[in-house]
Structures are given as structure tokens and as C-alpha cells.
Design a protein around this nucleic acid. Structure first.
Lengths: 235, 235
DNA sequence: ACACTTATGGTGCGCTGTTCCATGTTGGAA
DNA sequence: TTCCAACATGGAACAGCGCACCATAAGTGT
């Protein structure tokens, strides 16, 4: 009878304990902890003490859940209010860029996922949200309408690329892949470039020293300034 | 004669039925046909009439094979000689960009894979190859050395992003109706933007008409021109 | 009390990458 | 010529995955 009681308790159902938001939040936690491979339906069911049926009922397939998680995080990142700097278009753009920078720093899996979104669903809610946010400021810069698209996409692509390239796990060492420290990483890259044959790779060899004492954020903003300069020349 | 040459070179290993290049080529074929999911160890063993042991012996894990395939295709794309245009740095950069453009058009899986390389192995052979090729021309443009890295990375990120965004996603390998699909695709995007609430998405709504009559390549080159303009201003 | 929808937990299928190992093959030493 | 260690191969076995499917409990309108 203990068997029966246990079984009865174990198979007991809950009433509406599971919500879509709860699943998404847990999925983001799993992604943050274990990267894209850390999100499995089985891990979700275990963490939420439920079955796979409930998961699929609420959020659909794993891929859909992955997209939803991306949309959620990006929407949150785009919704942050800019700092108390004067609200010039340039500052707004910088704010958006740094918001994405921080979002990817916090959720490393975003780097890969954003790229997937860019190619597989270029005009889905994620990219539309980013484009809209950037595009408005481009328009505010006084760029002629014919160049709006080019200007916005140049900014977006640089931002996404630079941010993805700079993505590292800082602080938390619980990542799946034993990622070395940022400094060690840059050191390794720098020495690797120096060991390249200068005849074959003169450029990488020449800039191998630069990367050692460069500040990520500063470089990032310098790149944005470069693009902004090109954009303002369109007027 | 091959036998004689082989025999003459005493260091030559014993004859292999399966070669590393053969596996890589077949892998690229599978990727072109079925995307990233089309490359499975079992499909490889079937196509090559061998076992999984041989595959792992020659090219390692699936992920390593994926990276190798990417390196192979990118190296080939970077090795193409520029057109008969005057060899100015600007033209060389355009040639590299269009080479990558065409490579991704031919191998759609590259878009996602390049993004993965950018984040997971930013200074591996693939990215180093691209950076080197672009960086040399940046240097030739007369950019001060302190700005080399920023200028090169801005170009690279715009190129990779724009090219990935323009990559088609037709599951069919036929490629016959690629243009038709492309047109439908842009039409769908355009109408989708028009149906967005202009209050929430004024920018996307405003440029929804542009995308209908825009030429991919032209837009792409316009973006490069924009970045080049910003770069030359660094002098 | 009844049928019907919603929500849930669990099982099983087909597929995957990878490891391991017995076997075939080869070039050169003995 | 004989033999052997290293190379190369094919396939079986394993653990893991996403997902379809199902039986059923809980909620809801009638």
C-alpha cells in the first residue's frame, strides 16, 4: 500500500502551475549555465518537475523555445533606458549598442543564436526590433531616405559582429567549455599571431601587439564612431 | 607513374583507400545539399561506402569536420584572383567581399558556420585569413596604424553580416527557382513591415517600399563604400 | 451528471555522435 | 622471403537527443 500511496502521489497532477513565462525563464537559466547544448527537453522537465508533453503544449519545439528565449532577452536589452547623457542620435545608438554588448556578455549563447536569426529569419521580430531601434536614430541623423537601409544595416552588422566576437564568459566559471580568462585568451591570440609567418600574414603579425593592451569597450565604440562618421558624410 | 613517383618517395605512407580530402569534399556536398543537418556521420559512411571508424580516423569529430569544411571553402574563396579592374585597395576589398558573397550564395550553410567561428574561435584560421586579406588593404589605404584593427574589423563585420543576411534559405538544392523564391521572400518581408503598426515601427514601415526594388549586390557595395568612406576619413 | 477542452506526466521510436574493437592491409626490417 | 608492428577500415554497441503520441486528471460549460 505504500506502493500505491507513493504511486498515487507521484502521478498526482498539478493545477496550472506551469506557465509559458516560467518555462522560458528556466530555459534561459539553462542556456546561461550550459550554453546552447545545456537546453534539453529532459533538463527542462527535470528542473520544472514535469513532463515533456507540458513543455510542448506551452512553448512548442525546442527550436521555437530557443527563438522565444532570444526574443525575450533581446527585447529586454532594447528596452533599457539610455543613460543621462544628452539624447543625441549618436548617444542613443551607442546606448543600444552597449545594451546588446552587455546582453551578450550576460548570455553568451546569444552570440550564436543572433547569427542564426540573422540568416534564417532575417526579418523576424528580433532583427526587426534591432533595426527599428537603430533605424530611427539613423533617420534622426539627417541621412537621406535612399540611404536609410544601407546606413542602418551597416551599423547593425558591425554591432552584432563586434559584440559576438567579443563575447566571453566573464566571472562565472561554470561554463561548459573551460574557457580561459579573457586576458589569457588575448595573450594566446597575440602570441599565435606573432608566430605566424610574417611573409604570409604581415598584417596579423603587425597588429599582434595592439590586441594586448586594447580595451574591448573602447575599441567597440571606436568602430561605431567610424561607421557614424561614414554615415554623417551621406548628408 | 604515380606508382613510380610514390615508390620513389620513400617517405610516402602506404596507400589509403580513403583520403582526408575525399571526406571533406563529400562533406561539403552533403552540406550543400541538405544544410548543416544534412551532414551526418551515417550519411558520410553511406556515401563513401565505409565505416564511422575511418571517418573519425581521418577528420575527427563532426564538429572538427565542419570547421575543416568551412576553412576549405573560405580559403578557396579568398584565393580567387580579382577582376581586371585597377588594383586599388578599394577594388581589392570589393573583390574579397564579393568573393565571400558568392561563396555563401553557393554554400548557404557557411552563413551560420562563419558566425559560429566568429564567436567560438575568433582567431582561428578562418577569421585570421579573412582579417589578413582585408587588413592588408586597410593598411594600403594609408590608415594610421593605431586604427588598423578598428578599420579592418568594421569592414569584416559588415561584410559577414550583410552577406549572411542576404543568404537564401531554400531547402531545395535545385537552385533553379532561387530568384523567384528570393523575390517572394522580399515581397513577404515588405508586406510584413507595412502591416506593422506605424506607431510602433515607424522606421521599418517607412523603408518597406525600398526593399522591393533593391539590388542585393548594389546595396552590399553601397555599404562597403560607406565604411570605406569612414575609414579614409581616419587619415 | 454530463460531455468537452485544457493541461499534464510518461513512454517509446527513430535518429544522432561517438567509442571501441576485431579485422584487413601495407612497407620495411630481419 | 617471412614476418610484424603500424596503419587503416568497417561495424557493432552505447548513451543521448528531440519529438510524437497517449492515457488521464483537472477544469468548464451545460
Amino acid at each position: 500500500m505504500q506502493d500505491m500511496a507513493t504511486r498515487a502521489r507521484r502521478t498526482q497532477r498539478r493545477r496550472q502551475v506551469l506557465s509559458r513565462e516560467q518555462i522560458i525563464d528556466t530555459a534561459i537559466e539553462l542556456l546561461d549555465a550550459g550554453g546552447e547544448g545545456g537546453l534539453t527537453v529532459r533538463a527542462l522537465t527535470e528542473r520544472l518537475a514535469t513532463g515533456s508533453g507540458a513543455i510542448y503544449y506551452h512553448v512548442g519545439t525546442r527550436d521555437e523555445l530557443l527563438n522565444t528565449a532570444t526574443e525575450t532577452v533581446i527585447a529586454a536589452a532594447l528596452a533599457i533606458k539610455p543613460a543621462r547623457a544628452p539624447a543625441t542620435p549618436e548617444n542613443e545608438i551607442r546606448a543600444v549598442a552597449l545594451g546588446l554588448f552587455d546582453a551578450i556578455a550576460e548570455h553568451q549563447w546569444l552570440a550564436t543564436r543572433l547569427a542564426v536569426q540573422l540568416t534564417r529569419n532575417p526579418w523576424g521580430p528580433v532583427m526587426v526590433g534591432i533595426f527599428e531601434k537603430i533605424g530611427r536614430q539613423v533617420r534622426a541623423l539627417g541621412v537621406p531616405q535612399a540611404a536609410w537601409f544601407v546606413a542602418a544595416s551597416t551599423l547593425v552588422h558591425y554591432i552584432l559582429g563586434a559584440v559576438s566576437q567579443n563575447a566571453r564568459i566573464d566571472g562565472d566559471a561554470s561554463g561548459v567549455e573551460a574557457d580561459v580568462d579573457r586576458e589569457k585568451f588575448l595573450d594566446a591570440a597575440s602570441t599565435a599571431w606573432q608566430e605566424l609567418d610574417p611573409a604570409d600574414y604581415p598584417f596579423m603579425h603587425a597588429i599582434s601587439g595592439q590586441v594586448r593592451e586594447h580595451d574591448d569597450r573602447e575599441q567597440f565604440l571606436a568602430g561605431i564612431a567610424l561607421v557614424l562618421d561614414g554615415i554623417t558624410n551621406l548628408r
